[in-house]
Computed example of a mutant assay.
Amino acid sequence: MERLRSSAKVKIHVESDNLIMYGSAVESAGCVLRGVMSLKLQEPIKVKSIVLELFGKMAVTWTEGLGNGHDRLFREEKSVLNHTWTFLPKEAKLHLMNPGDYTYDFELVLPGDLPESTYVPNFYTVQYHLKATIERSTFMPNLNLRKIFHISRQLLPLTPDFLEPVAISNQWSNKLDYEITLPSKIYTHGDQIPITIRITPLTNTLRVRHLSCTLKEYMICRAAGSAAGILNTRPRAHGRVLFSTRDDKFGRTNNATSQADNFIEWTKVQTIPLPTSVQDLQCDIQNEAIRIRHKIKFVLSLINADGHVSELRAALPITICAINKTGLPAYEEAWRSLPYDPAAFLALLYQSNNGNPTLPSYNSIVDNCSLVAANNPPTYDEIPCLISR
């Protein structure tokens, strides 16, 4: 009798967890989702079917005032993408699967007008995921697995003004000159943003209390589609602080007694580390439902000669993109540009699963791809030959 709990292991491997669409929703050609679903059996099982489903959902949540201090919560969900791969169709009889490794490759071209993956707490979310289902016989629990992947949109093209250094400079109340410089306007997840701050006091009576630097993410949401007819169309604003620091020692050199003709410049290089997770840092987005922007804000708190406290405030907008490539790709990314083949992809996965977590060498990838081309392409039974090389 077949055991109620199966030892079967299901995995979903995708070529990339973060798919990128280049250009706006009007001009983008979309992107391609590729991968392999694997099933490892240590004992025979009977199944009805094996399918892989792709879901994309948009959810809008809002609160509508009913008067007298009462609110009502609404939630609307909309499907933006659906697709099903049937690897083993249902038949009159159950399929008997013997112990072994089973692999099923999948591929789908995604349209370029899809909304980007987004998460705005309590208002707007867009999420994409894959769901594998191995449907077993009656009264036997199915085997299920979900895998979330991310869709981002990339500027096209990256114009030169985005890649040039960004700076603001001005004179404040005839008391100081300031300059704030960034090496570029474009950044991505995991980047380090070096900010150079130069302050030149024009009077010796000025003292600094502190210098603060903050990176903020701004989101403006509005209801779209059928929700717009129900929801108050006033946009909802949401923001969060991604990084904040305060320097209480900045400008202390000006506190020392000095001659009036001495030149003083307060200089600081502040580095902002950007989060690596797409949940902790979202790309800049603009569509009919949401707009996301990022700014770095500076506040220089000053004490005047009469003891009055003043604040110099400045802000620099930056653009967060899915990728930030202005030159040749790094070695770690070079292998991704090779022609895609499910067999070669599986071979690299098996190399990693067999205790080799590092990236393969360039020569091994070329050899594997050459072997794939020579066999045009090999069957799954021939994959161990790829691995042995």
Results as ranks from 00 to 15, higher is better:
residue 259 Q to L: 13
residue 258 S to Y: 07
residue 226 S to H: 11
residue 258 S to L: 12
residue 230 I to P: 02
residue 257 T to R: 11
residue 241 V to F: 02
residue 242 L to Q: 11
residue 241 V to P: 08
residue 257 T to H: 10
residue 230 I to W: 01
residue 238 H to V: 14
residue 233 T to I: 06
residue 248 D to V: 08
residue 228 A to Y: 01
residue 262 N to Y: 13
residue 256 A to P: 07
residue 225 G to Y: 06
residue 249 K to Q: 13
residue 261 D to M: 14
residue 224 A to G: 06
residue 233 T to C: 00
residue 231 L to E: 04
residue 223 A to L: 00
residue 232 N to V: 05
residue 225 G to R: 03
residue 233 T to K: 05
residue 233 T to S: 10
residue 259 Q to P: 01
residue 260 A to Q: 14
residue 240 R to N: 14
residue 252 R to F: 00
residue 226 S to C: 09
residue 258 S to A: 12
residue 240 R to P: 05
residue 251 G to I: 02
residue 225 G to F: 01
residue 238 H to I: 10
residue 233 T to R: 07
residue 258 S to H: 13
residue 262 N to G: 08
residue 224 A to K: 08
residue 243 F to G: 09
residue 224 A to T: 08
residue 246 R to Y: 05
residue 240 R to V: 11
residue 227 A to R: 01
residue 224 A to W: 05
residue 232 N to K: 08
residue 233 T to N: 08
residue 240 R to A: 07
residue 256 A to G: 08
residue 238 H to P: 04
residue 249 K to S: 09
residue 247 D to T: 10
residue 228 A to V: 01
residue 254 N to T: 10
residue 262 N to Q: 15
residue 228 A to M: 03
residue 235 P to A: 04
residue 261 D to Q: 15
residue 235 P to F: 02
residue 245 T to H: 11
residue 260 A to C: 14
residue 242 L to C: 15
residue 243 F to C: 13
residue 232 N to Y: 03
residue 262 N to E: 15
residue 259 Q to G: 10
residue 244 S to K: 13
residue 251 G to A: 07
residue 248 D to A: 12
residue 236 R to E: 02
residue 225 G to S: 03
residue 259 Q to I: 12
residue 250 F to D: 01
residue 239 G to V: 13
residue 243 F to K: 13
residue 227 A to Y: 01
residue 250 F to T: 02
residue 230 I to C: 03
residue 243 F to R: 09
residue 237 A to G: 13
residue 238 H to F: 13
residue 240 R to E: 09
residue 239 G to D: 15
residue 260 A to K: 12
residue 245 T to W: 13
residue 238 H to G: 12
residue 232 N to P: 04
residue 241 V to S: 09
residue 239 G to C: 11
residue 235 P to V: 05
residue 261 D to H: 10
residue 257 T to P: 08
residue 248 D to Q: 11
residue 234 R to S: 01
